[in-house]
Design a protein around this nucleic acid. Sequence first.
DNA 1: CCTTTGGTTGCAATCGTTTGTGAGAACATA
DNA 2: TATGTTCTCACAAACGATTGCAACCAAAGG
Lengths: 345, 345
Amino acid sequence: MKEKSTSVHPPTLRDVAEAAGVHAGTASRALNPETRRLVNSDTARRVLRAAEALGYQPNPIARSLKTAKSRTVGLVIPDLTNPLFPPIVRGIEDVLSPAGYSALIVNTDNDPERERAQVNSLRSRQVEGLIVATARLDHQLLRQLHEQGLKMVLVNRRTLGVDIPFITPDDAAGVELAVRHLADLGHKRIAHLAGPQSTSTGTIRLQAYETAIHTLGLEEDPALIVPCDYWNEEEGARALRELLDSGTAFTAVVAGNDLIALGCYDVFNERSLSCPTQISVVGFNDMPFLDKLKPPLTSVGVPHHQIGVEAARMLLESISEPDRPARSVLLPLNLVVRGSTAPPS
Amino acid sequence: MKEKSTSVHPPTLRDVAEAAGVHAGTASRALNPETRRLVNSDTARRVLRAAEALGYQPNPIARSLKTAKSRTVGLVIPDLTNPLFPPIVRGIEDVLSPAGYSALIVNTDNDPERERAQVNSLRSRQVEGLIVATARLDHQLLRQLHEQGLKMVLVNRRTLGVDIPFITPDDAAGVELAVRHLADLGHKRIAHLAGPQSTSTGTIRLQAYETAIHTLGLEEDPALIVPCDYWNEEEGARALRELLDSGTAFTAVVAGNDLIALGCYDVFNERSLSCPTQISVVGFNDMPFLDKLKPPLTSVGVPHHQIGVEAARMLLESISEPDRPARSVLLPLNLVVRGSTAPPS
DNA sequence: CCTTTGGTTGCAATCGTTTGTGAGAACATA
DNA sequence: TATGTTCTCACAAACGATTGCAACCAAAGG
């Protein structure tokens, strides 16, 4: 008549063991498929049955303490509110969850200080790896973490000089798609509102723009390139105004991403320019609801969900097989043609 | 010459204790501000210094195991991809994170089975509470969890017959705002494309529509009300088509939410109807980029971030002071007038 | 000088698992 | 009968923190 009876606490391994008339250690082995062969199949059955009956759920915290595995990964993104990220996050969780892993999400707001703090908090929570969407070309923190042996996968962007696997869209191919589409429509002077050159995405897309312009034999003019400091509408608007004010002639613009393209829309309204009649625009990312705009924005479609899926898979892989050299992957893109692009008038 | 020397593992409490020349228990007390007064301030200082020097980070897993507190809460939402949720999630994390808590996010896709499974997984990870955005009016699972004493806060929606605190926008006031705006413009026959009547949001908004119509002396006609089965564009489009096909006269529609309103836009294109000249529309939620639509959608603005903030605060409160009866809160709304509403022609 | 008091600190148990080690039984072999 | 083998399983020591308890010491009071 110990103190058992009506314990309100969830059943523990000991409870199961007791119910099955075995030692806790044996119960543990019986419950774990990996080690089940070490126990008599009869007793294993008995343990399983007892566990079932008691509604036993192993305590992951105790397990983690012993095994030093948290079954948790960290997810470092600039801002969840950016429509780019939710689909990636979903993709990640769709892989993690069936594998028994969970993701801890932190937002850095692109603040290196905050990023450092958040990553520390993740590490103190014993994450087994990180999926990072905030990579900059020269990224001190990532370099450090990598040297400390922390498992990481980069999404959407990469970093230089450090051998961390990344999953990104094939940005260069995407830009090539966009430029070629405009060229096919007959545009000769195509501008590029480039993303921040501190990010791989920004520089790669810019380079791709330049080579596409070159190989297609279009007009090459440095004045056609205006870089943005951030990936947002304000900067997109500012850049387009700058371009217009410079007097440089152009009939189409390849925006660094959709938000920059949206900034262009604002300027079109401001200055009563008509799109696509006077200026064609193509965005990048194909974020939701672009088809509801007037005109609907032509954009390069990025498989965000897929990026998340691949990243999660890769991270899990590199956790379970630490030696296997992780490979980076470039995901194929497709151009979604809508109403914002037309032949020049 | 034990096996100490260059241990690569992160320093443990024992390491700190050893470095400070005290027992682990003392070190523990010295490190914890709550119990620090139990140890001599000199030795406390020494311990602190040693911890600092070693870069000691307490292992939250070990701590959790002992204290049975995980410093983790679960976040149950239908789909992170719905633009409604990211701002709420940010709000939640902005409160949780400084408090030393983390959020585990799960998506249910509105599937009760999946919801049950996800919640189980959260519980097995020892979450201290749940923030739930998937409440239905009659929600068996929530009722059970509540009876089992699990701490919960509902966001955006509520449930009936169970006393769980909720944080929602003041839906009724919002609809009143919308209807009054249309009435002020001169509309007499205002339709309502209602949200799912299985959700509190759907029913409350519908009721508010009815009473607003009544008190403002506008035309009351059951034919003006068409319910949607889901909160999405397809249903919005379907409902508007149904309304149009029924031949019922109307000059404006109050949509259950923005997605339903977007569905209306599709039908406008389909049938070459002009908004707002022929039909005015107002949405609900004021999700991002509505100002980029043509016409820009008039919508009821909801303080999503604030909802998240309040919800997280409330949950933390009910965790730290289990007795304090948690109160629900209704957050004030504001109407954002844009181009989709105009006087009837 | 003995006791009391209060402030500090060490000891050891505990949280719920996992896992190395060895004991016992059953059986086969010599 | 003695000696191995092979299966099973129980024991107990971890993992890294927290915490009730007891011990110790110095100062104070009688």
